[in-house]
Amino acid sequence: MDVTIYHWKNGGEESYIVRKQELVPLFSEDEKVIDGFQLRQRMKESPQYLIFLSLQAYRTEEVQEVKTYEEFLESDCELIFRVIDSSYITMYVKDQEQIERLYVNAKNYGFENVSYITDENDCETTLTVWG
């Protein structure tokens, strides 16, 4: 997916890039929104160590805090990407074609236990990683 077309709101979680064998925060404390070009560059320049991460994708710089699925549906947020405990990854995506491409990509890269989140199997009460 093209991350550069979005502005990314980060939830201030615990995520790092590895520089010279040291962990450096992926985002500074005051960096709440990053444009897609900066995010792509940062992710390409160094390996990442993602423990807890929540990113929300918007087409404009005007972002809002989305904490629940209902808020996600009503917002301009197009995608939420979460990493919990370095191993549990979820994505909420409004565009059906993009969901399908992400699903196929995850399977092609060998991710295990890939499944669609539906109303029947979603037990989440919040879309934040600390929820």
Rank of each mutant, 00 (worst) to 15 (best):
Q64N: 09
Y109W: 05
G11W: 06
N113A: 10
E65L: 12
V24K: 14
G36A: 12
E124W: 08
R59V: 06
R82N: 14
L50G: 07
N10R: 04
E70D: 14
Q48T: 11
M1F: 10
E100K: 15
S15W: 03
Y92N: 02
V18R: 09
F27R: 09
K94I: 03
Q64I: 14
E22L: 04
D30N: 15
S54H: 09
E29T: 13
K44E: 15
T90S: 11
K94Q: 06
D119F: 05
G131L: 05
L127A: 13
A57Q: 12
R42G: 14
Q98W: 10
T128I: 05
T118R: 04
D35M: 04
E100S: 15
V129W: 02
L79N: 03
R42L: 07
Q21L: 01
Y49V: 02
D2F: 03
Q38P: 01
F72G: 05
V129E: 14
D35R: 08
N105Y: 12
S54N: 13
S46F: 13
C123H: 14
L26R: 09
E97P: 03
L50K: 00
Y49K: 08
I5P: 01
W8G: 01
K9S: 10
K32Q: 11
Y92C: 00
C123P: 01
Q64E: 15
L50F: 12
L26F: 12
R19C: 05
T126I: 04
D95K: 08
E22H: 05
Y88W: 14
Y16A: 03
